[in-house]
Design a binder for these strands. Structure first.
Length: 448
DNA sequence: TCTGGGGTCCTAGGACCC
DNA sequence: TCTGGGGTCCTAGGACCC
């Protein structure tokens, strides 16, 4: 059996843990740059506020109903997430962290085992987990338990929609499974997005139960090949995907990116360059934190796609397989990024957003291979020289930034040449950010 | 004026090889 | 001029996820 534990309205719940006066009131959390709504309390949902709604379009509604607005505070959410995941790791044989607020649990063989302890077996165990997460972290959750991941997701969803279930649904019998499948619209099945939902309803497939009845060939044809076939099999109760435990409570990525919409449109290439250098710095930090090097680097810039005066294409990108071999050195990566950027920046263009992506991630190879396949290109030569010089520098830099705060020590190229209101020109708004209650000493709550 | 950010997996098609 | 079958690797793009 698989469990799927999902935190309810996670970001809103995190804010409420530290400011309980917002309990029972409508609350929303906004995306970066205070752009759109990314988390809503039940009360906010009841007001008709949609997920992803742009703030500027709904701000009157927010004000009218006295909705409490927060800018996103990832230092807080990330830390709360680690606490939840850590606890799950203590009580189950395997945890796959699926996202900041969701985890699959390995519950195989636990039903019999739990019976003598909890009487009700797995179902009672699920209730215990949920209660303990709430008691230890303050975060409310729902837990679906079923023979496949897809059914566990579905069970979780049904548990969320039916408060009488007490936050847990265990699909242990064919009858319960059939009932649960009837409750869920096909568009709400895990793996069915907008495009597929449209195709399916056009074909008269409206519920998850309908989808569970289609033939494999039909699923392959309509739902993107093998993915669709697996999805239907999983709905029928045959597992097609196992649990991939997250080692020591962290997630290891196959690609790492960092991108931002700028706080204001940027025209000066120097500003865009500094922004990209700072995004690259962040991406390289994440790369080293997971103990990898990157072999492939992509840089992209975007114009404003919402501006009718700007013709497509909105985005230009350039990708490079590092000629000097994989690297985790910010200086090396930044040099290549600057080079890639020169290929895609156009004079007189106004940019809205930029980003970097690191791919081809692998652990550092032992031994010195520098220079062996040394490329002739001047950029590569310069880059190789840089990384050979003081190889410990990145470790030192990460140590300093961990101790004294992110950005304490930076590359010169990532430092903005001008500041606007004390911030770099690419940094956005975060008008309503709460404190880093759990990770910054100055923000600790005081109890009087 | 203001519209997020970070991921995964799969398929198709081209280049190249024997 | 006609003309095979299989394999690998890479990239671009689509669809989906939270």
């Amino acid at each position: 059996m698989f469990g799927l534990l999902d935190c309810n309205n996670f970001y809103v719940s995190c804010e409420r843990v530290f400011q309980p006066r917002f309990e029972g009131r409508p609350v929303v959390v906004l995306s970066n740059n205070d752009g759109c709504i990314i988390s809503r309390s039940a009360e906010a949902k009841a007001l008709g506020l949609a997920m992803g709604a742009p703030y500027f379009q709904v701000k009157d509604v927010l004000r009218q109903h006295g909705v409490q607005v927060f800018s996103s505070n990832y230092a807080l959410y990330g830390d709360m997430s680690r606490r939840v995941m850590w606890y799950l790791g203590q009580v189950t044989p395997g945890v796959e962290i699926y996202s900041i607020d969701e985890a699959f649990l390995d519950l195989h063989g636990l039903d019999q085992y739990m019976q003598p302890y909890l009487g009700g077996g797995l179902e009672a165990f699920a209730h215990t987990i949920r209660a303990n997460v709430k008691a230890r972290t303050g975060i409310p959750t729902c837990l679906g338990v079923a023979p496949t991941k897809t059914l566990a997701k579905l069970a979780n969803r049904v548990a969320k929609k039916n408060p009488d279930l007490g936050g847990v649904l265990y699909l242990d019998s064919a009858e319960r499974r059939a009932w649960a499948l009837e409750q869920v619209a096909v568009s709400d099945v895990w793996g069915i997005g907008r495009q597929y939902a449209q195709k399916l309803t056009a074909a008269g497939i409206d519920s998850a139960a309908d989808l569970a009845k289609v033939s494999e060939a039909w699923a392959r044809k309509m739902l993107g090949g093998v993915v669709g076939a697996r999805l239907v099999r999983e709905l029928q109760g045959y597992p097609c995907s196992g649990l991939h435990p997250s080692e020591d409570g962290t997630l290891s990525r196959q690609s790492i990116s960092c991108s931002r919409t700028f706080g204001r449109p940027l025209t000066a290439h120097n500003d865009v360059r500094a922004a990209v250098a700072s995004f690259l710095t962040r991406a390289a930090e994440k790369l080293r934190a997971q103990g990898d090097q990157a072999y492939v680097l992509t840089v992209y810039v975007q114009k404003n796609r919402f501006d009718p005066k700007v013709p497509p294409p909105y985005s230009r990108s350039a990708t490079l397989t590092l000629p000097g071999g994989p690297s985790a050195d910010t200086r090396v990566l930044a040099q290549y990024a600057g080079h890639l950027l020169s290929k895609i920046l156009e004079p007189g263009c106004t940019y809205h957003k930029a980003g970097v992506v690191l791919d081809g991630l692998e652990p550092p190879t032992t031994g010195q291979q520098l220079g062996l396949f040394a490329p002739a290109a001047p950029v590569a030569e310069a880059a190789a020289k840089v990384s050979a010089d003081r190889p410990q520098l990145m470790t030192t830099l990460d140590g300093l930034n961990a101790r004294f705060g992110r950005g304490t020590v930076r590359l010169g190229s990532a430092v903005p040449t001008t500041l606007i209101g004390g911030r770099a020109p690419w940094q956005g708004q975060a008008q309503w950010q709460s404190g880093a209650f759990t990770t910054r000493l100055e923000d600790l709550l005081t109890v009087s």
